[in-house]
């Protein structure tokens, strides 16, 4: 009797389950058949009238029905909720190929980017940063650097003058002097800053930036100057580039050198950007002239040192392949936002 009822219930449940259309229908079926007041409970109320020897078997059948239906309900329900989730997510769909929203980006000026990189490379070698005034005196800008007023080398420095011999510094070298006047060796500094010369064309700007370097200690040598600057130039331009040291002349160094890096465009074979020489002039350097040490009260027989000066705009122009220095000071957003 009960067995037949159970069979009938199972058949009916399967029919209803097959018609269920969503998670809610499933939950309703679960209550209807398996709930506390559900159909199975109703049927099992008749268990009392069943022969005791039959009871375990009927009980087993009831449990089997319960487990199987419960599983089927869960499987069906999971299926329904997965579909519903998918439908909900579908409503969130975006076209990933639409353009992005971007905030106007901020960038460092290319000159500052290069300035930071130069400072960082020399920082690794223990060079400290020193700064000094843009408005200088003839004493610091020229005389103490062994450039007396009648020296032909003053022609190389087209100077902007203010009143009473004050001037806009033509290099950041005055800071070397200011530092040596107040500190004893060892001195290992770089001096970034604005410098000024009355000159303007596609490679010259009346205001530009320089990083000057100075290393003074007992027996600093030209070989160390070569090592330091080669390290810097390879770090900055890449290790595959050759570096060349040529003799040159500066009043504040002896011996003096000009340093070239192999042209990156033609790899040294010669092209228009290196004037067919295969080399690009990058910086000037040399061993500090004894006269400079004397002017700051150092004993030139006790210490030696090297100094160098690097034009930052030139580095930036070479690194980023900028053809006209004036682009750096026009501040057109279409230029600046590229860096």
């Amino acid at each position: 009797m009960i067995e037949a009822q159970l069979k009938e219930l199972e058949k009916q449940a399967h029919v209803e389950l097959s018609h269920a259309a969503g998670v809610q229908d499933i939950e309703a079926l679960r209550v209807k058949y398996l709930g506390k007041k559900g159909a199975l409970t109703d049927i099992l109320k008749g268990l009392a009238g069943v022969d005791a020897s039959e009871r375990p078997r009927i009980g087993q059948l009831a449990n089997q029905f319960k487990t199987e239906l419960s599983e089927q309900l869960t499987i069906k329900s999971d299926g329904f909720s997965a579909t519903e989730n998918r439908a909900r997510l579908e409503r969130d769909r975006v076209d990933i190929h639409l353009p992005s929203f971007r905030r106007n980006t901020g960038r460092l000026h290319p000159v500052q980017r290069v300035m930071r990189e130069v400072q960082e490379i020399f920082g690794r070698l223990g060079f400290s940063v020193k700064e000094g005034p843009d408005v200088e005196t003839e004493h610091y800008n020229f005389e103490s650097l062994n450039i007396p007023s009648d020296h032909p080398a003053r022609d190389m420095h087209d100077t902007f003058y203010l009143k009473m011999g004050q001037l806009l510094r033509t290099h950041t070298s005055p800071v070397q002097i200011r530092t040596m006047e107040t500190q004893r060796p060892p001195i290992k500094i770089i001096v970034p800053g604005n410098v000024y010369r009355c000159d303007m064309d596609i490679t010259h700007s009346p205001m530009f930036h320089q990083v000057e370097g100075l290393y003074v200690d007992e027996s600093v040598s030209f070989a160390q100057l070569k090592g330091t600057l080669t390290y810097f130039l390879r770090e900055f331009f890449g290790h595959e580039r050759d570096v060349r040291f040529r003799p040159s002349y500066f009043p504040f160094t002896e011996p003096s050198t000009e340093v070239d890096v192999q042209c990156g465009r033609c790899e040294g074979s010669g092209c228009a950007s290196c004037k067919y020489s295969g080399w690009l002039e990058i910086l000037g350097a040399g061993m500090v002239n004894r006269k400079v040490f004397e002017s700051v009260g150092y004993d030139p027989d006790e210490v030696t040192g090297f100094a160098f000066g690097i034009g930052i705009e030139r580095l930036a122009m070479l690194k980023y392949k900028i053809s006209d220095i004036r682009l750096l000071y026009e501040n057109d957003l279409r230029f600046l936002s590229q860096f």
Binding site: L125, P186, K188, Y215, V220, F222, G227, T228, F245, R246
Partner: peptide, 20 residues
């Protein structure tokens, strides 16, 4: 140095410590 060219002069890095 000039007459020999600067090429034969070695490249040396100084390893004395100068603290930044």
């Amino acid at each position: 140095a000039r007459i020999q060219g600067y090429d034969p002069i070695p490249e040396a890095l100084d390893f004395r410590m100068v603290v930044q």
